[in-house]
Design a protein around this nucleic acid. Structure first.
Lengths: 186, 186
DNA sequence: TGCCAAATATGACGCCCATCATGTATCCGT
DNA sequence: ACGGATACATGATGGGCGTCATATTTGGCA
């Protein structure tokens, strides 16, 4: 059963969206090709018409997620930090930051997938540096960008790995305050 | 071939050490029970004499790693941060911090494994808070402990996920400087 | 010293997964 | 309108893994 070219493009996007959500929730290995295809409303057979292998799907999915992330334009860095370190983001693994969800898994990936994640981290640092360059000197802005991004990613990962919800909330809000405190005095 | 009680205890420890190293390097799923047993100098058969399942091994390994971590007494928090954000630590995944290496994987673990990691994060925050309480008030110390630990874990994960070694080094040193800068002004 | 229990080795089983082979229906250029 | 290329479905295959069954060797107690 062949479908139209538009339908095929839509299917491909549905596969990438389904994979992006499931990979972020449970990692690459725990999600099977069949499960992704089923979630996209297809069967496993057509998979290799779209991707050459599961590793290829992983790389393409990471690239897809990076594109989506770059298209989002946060109102301000402060607002971005607030959203990032919110309990909603913590509890919405499947639709949240791909770096916090998949950096450890992407490191273990050989080849393309790892490179895509690596580039995503570099561009995120560059974006933060730009946003901070209006207030600070170039060198200070870059250091602050790296420190802030590290703290955000680390706090989100720690908040997600803690079972006690009160402590998890505290990790988010304390890190938020701690980042701001450092900045106001910088 | 039965072995002595001492030998059996030594075998158990070798299994846990081998598992700890390999899990930190490649995650839980990519490491098979057989591989761990072989690395410990045994065959896969004796595994279920020591552990009731692979999930049990994961939980026991995380507990074993947490014990080792608690036994290490760093000279000072400054020295600890320096070691933690060093290129040696970054490049020594198998012997490094279990939280940075396995927090994302432990979150996906059901039951015991997840709880062990959760408790490890809580105790690490408590230790940092103690170390900082000599200089700051209780509330400030705890906020700084959480912020510092988040930044350390995040920076190590990001440094490891980046392929460009210069950028990776920069993430480590910039985060180190950024943490210190915030503290000196606190 | 000899026997029994226990620790590990060898081997097997069933499941799930990635991948591929083939069938089938339908879009699209002519 | 029609025929061939194509997108997907169905089904098969081979390998790896967790787990269990059984055999074997040996430590430790009587």
């Amino acid at each position: 059963m062949k479908v139209s070219r538009d339908q095929m493009q839509a299917n491909r996007r549905r596969i990438l969206d389904a994979a992006g959500e499931r990979f972020r929730e449970r990692g690459f290995e725990a999600v099977s090709v069949s499960e992704v295809m089923k979630a996209a409303g297809l069967t496993h057979g057509g998979f290799y018409g779209h991707f050459s292998s599961k590793d290829d799907l992983i790389a393409e999915t990471l690239s897809h997620l990076a594109d989506q992330s770059l298209q989002r334009r946060p109102a301000s860095l402060d607002a971005y930090v607030d959203d990032y370190l919110s309990s909603q983001h913590r509890d919405n693994l499947g639709r949240g930051c791909a770096t916090a969800a998949l950096a450890s898994d992407a490191r273990r990936q050989s080849g393309e997938g790892r490179t895509v994640m690596s580039d995503a981290v570099a561009s995120q640092i560059a974006r933060f540096t730009d946003a901070l360059s209006t207030h600070d000197g170039a060198e200070d802005a870059r250091r602050e960008a790296i420190g802030t991004w590290s703290a955000m990613v680390g706090a989100l990962i720690l908040a997600r790995s803690v079972e006690d919800e009160a402590l998890s909330d505290e990790i988010l809000t304390s890190t938020k305050d701690w980042i701001r405190q450092g900045r106001s005095q910088g």
